[in-house]
Write a protein that binds this DNA or RNA. Structure first.
Lengths: 342, 342
DNA sequence: CTGAAAGCGCTTACAG
DNA sequence: CTGAAAGCGCTTACAG
């Protein structure tokens, strides 16, 4: 008769590997191998273990595995927003890239707040992630310090870092801002406004690109910029259109730092009975789903969100495995979508 | 001289509670209590422990804590989509409700797929969540079986379950569908079409509400329904508008099962030079941000997504604590937003 | 290919 | 209030 292990009332009540092993008549070690390195176990024993697993309904305990192996099989992802389709598509790319790799993905929404980011990272660090995917190039100093204390690999998403900096996957936000502005100039617009919200890293880089292009063309003027720190929404786009028209007389085009703002600006311009693009051209950034369908269709920059997530996760995985990736920085580019609104 | 514990090369390299305790000159147990039940430790010892924690940069190991306490402090959340703002707002409510409770939130996107849901739950079960938040009332049989094997509390979100069923937080999708349809009827529309995509539980319940209202008014007709299993998008809304107009002659209003579809239908109707609502009324469901701003503004049903997440998480937490909540089913209602489009 | 022992870093359950 | 011992459920590192 099998003597049951002493249970002082601490057991979780779940089926354990040891129970599976006993049921199969093998050592715990053999049961462990049958599940994680089946090649090292003979066919007959492996079959018996698998049969016991099924019969007992065994579910591995990740906490125990993590503790024993010091591999958490956790990847943490930090995005600044989930309300923005850009980042949910990044997440879809990440999930697809990691599909089947048995990683637990921890999704953290920083809500564009450094404090929130710090809190999330502090919590995530307790799970000792095998790696982390970060949005943006330069975390605030406190976050950098937190991350410096851990040896796990990191990959930055959305923009491109310098060659000697942290691995990154994205595209040049600066170049994209510049490209759109040059396009507007080439179409004959002269009083081109820039409308920016949130004022996160990427928006600021796009604004830099805009300024550079305007200066090159000797069209720059301070009153052409409307920048506010509030979150981007359609409602804000409508409000900022009013402000721009008030502040920048003769404004004939507006480059909005994202499509939400641009959509709101278009709707509001229509309410003011302005013809787009005849009286006012409006363009956005990101190419959200509605932009190709609204009336008029929105001129914008299409960005490779899904691929950024996919490639960033792929790069991170190879870093976790200790491989030396072919490239530590991946430029996925962007595409100008010339449509009706500008 | 302190004899270092034998290290056969298995240590993770991180600072452990034992190291903190030794540094502070107390037992590991005391250091543990100082962090988790500070009231049980005298002020002087507590201070020494906290000082050591800071000096050594100690980060608790969640896996070890979970294993020892058989409390994972994990809550898993399953939503069918992240592309849909409805669910990202639900998530925001959940995060806010659980703020400061030290739960790790696992966000799983099932992509409206039962296979994906099954895979996610199988993985999540390995982390032995303390509780789970599910979208929808009736998981598929295989998922039900998976969940039945675990004693953790569950709460369903979005719709209302029967009194004797699983706890739920949401509103009656059926009543909402019925309310919108009756509204259209009261406005004088007679050939009212229903446009449904995805065909998930909630869409079907809304369609039931529509049918009920149409039958009551003796207006029901098979050709007034356009139902497709594809995911809802603006592009699909545009395509389905064409199909509806072809299939249902004299159609004077369309109730779209969500705002994405409705927005696409509006844009496409405008391209066909149909005046809204004069020649065709269109309404949606959910009240997404763009709906109040587009031209014309969209008549729709506003749904309490954020509060659903918040209340569901609050209910789940009390269930996890073993409390008996005041109500196991919480009806948060919905609001008809009568705007320009219908 | 198989297994007994030890250990991962915490907390439970006692004892004082 | 404080602590020594044992245990959570796995895997590592050996030994055979």
């Amino acid at each position: 008769m099998l003597k049951p292990t002493v249970n002082k009332g601490r057991a979780s009540g779940r089926i354990t590997l040891a129970m599976v092993a006993r049921h199969a008549g093998v050592a715990t070690m053999t049961a462990s191998r049958a599940l994680t390195q089946p090649g090292l176990v003979s066919q007959p024993l492996r079959d018996r273990v698998l049969k016991s697993v099924a019969e007992l309904g065994y579910v591995p305990n990740r906490a125990a595995r993590a503790l024993a192996s010091s591999q958490s099989k956790v990847i943490a992802v930090l995005v600044p927003s989930l309300a923005n389709a850009v980042f949910t598509e990044v997440l879809a790319g990440i999930e697809d890239a990691l599909e089947g790799d048995d990683y637990q993905i921890l999704i953290g929404n920083t809500r564009y707040s450094e404090r929130e980011e710090e809190k999330l990272i502090t919590t995530y660090l307790q799970s000792a992630p095998d790696g982390m995917l970060l949005t943006g190039l330069s975390p605030c100093p406190r976050v950098q310090q937190l991350l410096a204390g851990s040896p796990m690999p990191l990959v930055s998403m959305m923009d491109l870092a310098g060659a000697d900096e942290q691995p990154s996957v994205g595209f040049s936000q600066f170049a994209a801002g510049q490209t759109m502005t040059r396009y507007l100039i080439s179409r004959g617009y002269r009083r081109i406004g820039f409308m920016g919200a949130q004022l996160d890293e990427r928006t600021l880089r796009r604004a830099d690109g805009y300024r550079q292009a305007m200066q090159e063309a000797r069209l720059a003027a301070a009153e052409l910029e409307v920048m506010v720190a509030q979150p981007s929404t359609i409602a804000l786009g409508a409000a900022l259109l009013d402000r721009m028209l008030e502040q920048a007389s003769g404004c004939d085009a507006i480059f909005c730092c994202n499509d939400d703002l641009a959509q709101g600006a278009v709707f509001q311009a229509q309410r003011r009975n302005l013809h787009i693009p005849g009286q006012l051209a409006i363009c956005g950034f990101n190419d959200l789903p509605a932009s190709a369908w609204m009336n008029p269709t929105l001129t914008t920059i299409s960005t490779p969100r899904y691929r950024i997530g996919f490639e960033a996760a792929t790069l991170l995985r190879s870093l976790i495995k200790g491989e030396t990736p072919a490239a530590r920085h991946i430029d996925l580019g962007f595409t100008l979508m010339a449509r009706e609104s500008a």
